[in-house]
Structures are given as C-alpha cells and as structure tokens.
Design a protein around this nucleic acid. Structure first.
Lengths: 157, 157
DNA sequence: AAAAAGAGTACCAAAAAGGTCCAGTTTCCG
DNA sequence: CGGAAACTGGACCTTTTTGGTACTCTTTTT
C-alpha cells in the first residue's frame, strides 16, 4: 500500500522524542525505550542504524548514549527513510539496471517512473524532523505540485 | 525502500499498453500477455482487479476482453496504485484508528504524517496514464512543493 | 575491575508479495 | 444446440520481507 515500514515509523518517533528534549544531551537507548514505550531491542536496533547513517551521534561506554547529529530542522524525512529502509526508489527499475526493461523496447516508461520517484522524494525532503515533532503542526500550502500532464507542452530542458 | 509492488508495476505496463493501441478496441488478457511478455495468469489477475475498481471495462464471453473505462489522461497513477494495493497510506496510523497513538499523547505526530501522506498522494495524482505511455516523456518543473519547513521564515502558527 | 553503555550479528516467526491453478459463467458462432 | 473463447472468483503455494529478539563483543567511566 505504498507505506513506510514500522522501523521508519518508530524511527521518527524516537528522533522526534530526542529533538523534543534537551537537544545536546545524550540519551540512552533505555531512556528512549522508556519514554516511547517501545521495546529496548527495537530502539537499540534503530538507533544503531540511524547512527550508522550519520543522523545520530553515539557515545559509547558508561554515561554514553545517542544525540542528534544535526539540529532537527536539518534532518529530513527522506533521510530517515533512506537510513532505515534503503534508498527511496518507487520501482525496482530505478535501483539497478538489470531489469527486463532495457532489453525491451516496450518499457520506455522507466524515465517516467523516475520522474514520479523524484516527485515523491521531493515531497519527503520537504518535511523535516522539526516539522514532525510532537505538538507542532505542519502546514502545507494548497499543494502546488504541477507535473506537466497529458499532452500539455512544457519548457523542457 | 518505499516502493510500489510488482502488481502496480505490471498494471501500469498493461494499462499503458492498452492506451497506446486502439483506444476503444477491447483486447484480451492473452493479447496483453503476449505484447507485454507477462505471464497470462498475472495479466488476468491484474485486469480483474483493475476492472473491479472501475479502471477497466470487461466484456465477457467469446470475443470479449478488456478496454479502458476512461481516456488515458483521466486515469491517475494514484488510482492505479489504490486499485492494486489498497488505499495509499504512508503509515499504519492513517488507515485505522485503533493504533496505540490515540491513547498515547506522545504520538501527536499523526496529523503530520497525514500531511506527508497528502503530499505523496498529491504527487501521484499529478501523473496520468497518458503521461506514462511508452514513448512519451513527462517533464517536471523545478519542483515547487513548498511545505512550511524548519523554523525558519515560517509565517504564523 | 566492574558496571553501563553501544556495536555487530545471528536468528526466528509472522506477514506480505509474487505467482499459479482451477472450477464456474457468460457470450459468440457455426 | 453445443462448443470454444473469455472473464470471474477463489484457493493455494513459495519466496521475500518485516518485525522482533538474543547473544557476544568492545568501549568508557568510576
């Protein structure tokens, strides 16, 4: 159904939890597990992934913990998803080049999928962690996404 | 990876194949299977779904087949995805109301997920079948999606 | 040294995706 | 009328992906 996995769902929850509190204070996986009521192993797994992808900084040893690698308004949803689910690619075609399409003249749709993918990614890059923080409200203007649709000519590149 | 299923991928292929040919000529599942080189049972399954959701008209019996229910520029990618994968909802929360969020004050992010979801759906509604038809090129203008983002110059609430 | 963290991996169960098959029905055509 | 050509509606199965847990390191502080 074109949905994000629970990992991402939880990840955003964790991150927004961290962004909400003392920004430069490191908090432990256990703390996060407690405040979000998610199981510790899950939190641990997600934090590791986020740290590995540069969204969190980790401090090892006693008194260690995690902290945001950047201010909340510089972390986008697109990055979070990419960190927890891999690169955003709407179809299989877009990732690798060994799909049947290339041998097959029928599927010259690839370029078009690419545009769709770009549009979706753009939407996701437009939302930052700060926007998602509990209590805040994101406002979206009437939705101005204008794809050149159906036959209308548009100044290409 | 936030990707669409193969059903959808194939579905778009089938539909664009139909849109490409004689628009008001019914073509059989077998024809489609041949021209797209997809296995017949797959084509059959997908066509059934699309017909069931009003994107295709089906004509039963000998000399039967499928035809587009509407002109190609009136069928959006969002509809195709909805027909083949169910309603577009980025997170679990958005579909049903029995998620843990509602008992839990922590997750007031639901409204924000909703905005994200809306943005993605909007992007998908902006692309029609005609845009995807083989040979055509969709061009997208610089990408003007402007979500009110990151504490910067936000006006108002 | 001991305790409190994170790192890295391996593992498993449940759900979803991907795909096939078959027993009806409907319609056309000779 | 009877058969062939199509769609209809399911059931079914296999493989992959998710979701979640566990266990053994290594690092750091006290």
């Amino acid at each position: 159904m074109l949905r994000v996995t629970k990992l991402t769902d939880y990840g955003v929850l964790l991150l927004s939890q961290m962004a909400d509190g003392d920004e430069r204070e490191a908090c432990t996986a256990r703390d996060l597990a407690d405040s979000t009521r998610l199981p510790l192993p899950m939190v641990s797994k997600i934090a590791k992934l986020l740290a590995h992808h540069g969204l969190l900084l980790s401090h090892r040893g006693a008194k260690g913990g995690y902290s945001l690698a950047r201010p909340a308004h510089k972390i986008t949803l697109a990055e979070i998803i990419a960190a927890l689910e891999g690169p955003i690619a709407i179809t299989d075609c877009l990732g690798h080049d060994d799909c049947r399409c290339e041998a097959d003249p029928i599927c010259s749709m690839r370029g078009n999928w690419d545009v769709v993918n770009h549009a979706v990614r753009g939407a996701l890059e437009g939302v930052t962690l700060e926007d998602m923080v509990a209590g805040k409200k994101v406002t979206v203007p009437s939705f101005p996404l204008a794809l050149a649709s159906s036959g209308s000519e548009r100044s290409g590149k």
